[in-house]
Design a protein around this nucleic acid. Structure first.
Lengths: 195, 195
DNA sequence: ACCTCCGGCTAATGACCTGTAGCCAGGATT
DNA sequence: AATCCTGGCTACAGGTCATTAGCCGGAGGT
């Protein structure tokens, strides 16, 4: 068995922390638990990470970056309002299905994140929510959508994603494709697109 | 200032625990915190409650009972599928707005609930979700709704409620009425009712 | 051959936390 | 008046946790 290099060990720790934070929560997970999951003792973790808090911050920050990047990539290819929203929702839902632990931790454990990591992450979160709200608002403006409140419609669509992260399971129905198809359809119905 | 009787003190503790569990989470809240919020010392709490765990279980159980009772009351008055769903969603959303701390704790802190309280509460939770799914399925069966998956539609509607518990604030827009109206409308669009 | 440094380890520190034991004041009951 | 009970309190037991200190084997470079 090859001894893992520095970077591998860090990735192992990252993965173990993600798994445990998602399953039990940040507060209920000890450094010793994370260490045991990668086969070492608690204090040895500090050769790789600065603190438990920094581990959480890194996981959440990385998740937000990924999510924002996927959103921008999804939206970039078209100018049509309905198509933009469809792609944004598809990206949103697939991310929450495919990386449900990351998304789950990113939402649930924000509470345990303290300054100085907290503010920048809340800002990116707000940016992401704002992007959806703008998408909906632009569609309403252009007459492509018809819904009373752009904000509430955007919140609803975003909450759909969080729901997916909670109940989605890789090994049973509905599949990622099922959910992506269904939820994009639902999102378009919410804004009453294309009639 | 009148000295609170036994029952009042218990209610104070209940309220303080709810507030703190919602704000910081169960794991991050100490008995001393709860005690301080009602003006006494940690150990004195044990004259009123058996344990921290039992306090959490009581809060969640009570919440589930309330939610189920509200649902049954809402649905009882009509046999029309669309109207039943409208009333069920209205009840669901209003509960999550009006009792957002209870709903929040009931969802988020289920993780911290261990046996023997865990199973019965999960059962009631499944019962509630099942009721929504049946409502949607019955509407599809009768031709009143048109949506691919009753389960996914029901999950989506339920997730909408959880979202409300997360971001709703009593002291700013949108108001409870705004959200109730908007979300019932959205739920009916999701199942494509009455066209 | 020597040295450096990486990444383990054990021991320990200091802070907390839940829950129990047992004391006590004062109101209620008899 | 004497007694009991309620609901506070302090002290403490028994644990866990994050993090630091300091040791050490062994791999890789010189």
């Amino acid at each position: 068995m090859a001894m893992p290099a520095h970077h591998d060990r860090r990735a192992q720790i990252w993965a173990a922390a993600l798994e445990l934070f998602a399953a039990r929560g940040y507060e209920a997970t000890s450094m010793a638990d994370i260490a045991a999951a990668v086969g070492i003792r608690g204090p040895s973790l500090y050769k790789h990470v600065a603190s438990k808090q920094e581990l959480l911050a890194a996981i959440i920050a990385h998740t937000m970056d990924d999510l924002l990047a996927a959103h921008h990539a999804a939206v970039a290819g078209t100018a049509d309002h309905t198509e933009q929203l469809r792609r944004a929702v598809d990206s949103h839902v697939r991310y929450h299905a495919r990386h449900r632990r990351e998304a789950f931790v990113g939402n649930r454990e924000l509470r345990s994140l303290v300054e100085p990591h907290r503010s920048p992450i809340l800002a990116r979160r707000a940016e992401y929510a704002g992007a959806f709200e703008n998408l909906v608002a632009a569609g309403i403006e252009a007459g492509a959508f018809e819904v009373r409140s752009a904000r509430l419609a955007a919140y609803s669509i975003l909450d759909l994603g969080m729901g997916v992260a909670v109940w989605f399971r890789e090994d049973s129905e509905p599949t990622e494709n099922d959910v992506a198809w269904h939820h994009t359809e639902i999102a378009l119905r919410i804004v009453q697109a294309g009639r």
